[in-house]
Design a protein around this nucleic acid. Sequence first.
DNA 1: CAATCATTGTACCGATCAGTACAATGATAA
DNA 2: TTATCATTGTACTGATCGGTACAATGATTG
Lengths: 186, 186
Amino acid sequence: MKTVYERADIVPLLAEIFRELGYEGTSLSRITERIGIGKGSLYHFFPGGKQEMAGAVLADVDGWFEHAIYQPLRKDDAREAIAAMWTNVNDYFRSGRRICLVGAFALDETRERFSAEIGDYFIRWIDALRSALMRAGCSEGEAQTLAEEGVAGIQGALVLSRALDDRMVFTRSLDTLAKRFDSVMR
Amino acid sequence: MKTVYERADIVPLLAEIFRELGYEGTSLSRITERIGIGKGSLYHFFPGGKQEMAGAVLADVDGWFEHAIYQPLRKDDAREAIAAMWTNVNDYFRSGRRICLVGAFALDETRERFSAEIGDYFIRWIDALRSALMRAGCSEGEAQTLAEEGVAGIQGALVLSRALDDRMVFTRSLDTLAKRFDSVMR
DNA sequence: CAATCATTGTACCGATCAGTACAATGATAA
DNA sequence: TTATCATTGTACTGATCGGTACAATGATTG
């Protein structure tokens, strides 16, 4: 019996494991056990080992945000794109039950391995959000401050809702942030 | 030659290591190497091993916040205590170069080991902040929302400033939060 | 069919993991 | 002094770490 995987099938499964266990906490044995895949397959798709696996996951996450969040913020109707951001972010992070892998990597020494990818992810998020806010009528300084506040607020809401084990905290925080944005944009 | 340590001397050193490396990333060999202490001493003070070390660090952190942040928020002049919170938090987290150990533990499976301590730390922070906000004139609902926003904002600012490797982001975020609090409290 | 090649499971490697055992050291006090 | 006891460094344990080697399998192509 031989189940054939593709690299693209494995990346989302890896993402969930890295999310739950962190980079250091994710061991190859836990990967093989949870995915049901052997080391042979794993190193066939990711010759660079654990580092390449985490890198592929980061690239996948980045790609999702670029397509679903950043591009609409840069190109689409500003108010609609911002409104869509709140709902898409709430869905993506499963109302706070899922964490942000990039944010988690930023907190410990894993940051050193992926500092470029981590920095890029947040820079582009803030820039795209600032672009939308300016098109919605904010001044550049106001937009920059609000964009940082929004992205940081989302990250903090993830920490808080997990710490309190209460998904309502996340949804409520997003709602509060959305109201703040609305009040500034009018 | 024999350098005599006390448990109380070691805890802050352990805290810095757990902060940088995370729970899983902190190995006993890195502890002994960085502190310059042998395993004998380590297990003499912490017979419960790594778990007890991290627990002692969490208790130490919690004690500092209780004394320096929570109690003033509950007892002292509300506006002064909130103002002091921003400056003390900025100092404690070294303008974002230091992370919040409790927040970091909340993000990965380490949460399962210390869920009670982690939840307690944030619950008490939010409660103390809400108490101060209500004494400063906020309604209960307004105070609860703002307290959650403040604590989450601090955690998010830590993630963001580390991700961007820019300490100005942290100081600026605290400043923005402080201004928001001021505008609501008037 | 034969040949090729991607994919797989498993056995194995040296290094490091958390934790234990214990004798040596040094301070304290009778 | 001697006895006691906290503190220490070091050697060791079995388990697990990330990574490699490689033969077996199955699909594809000639």
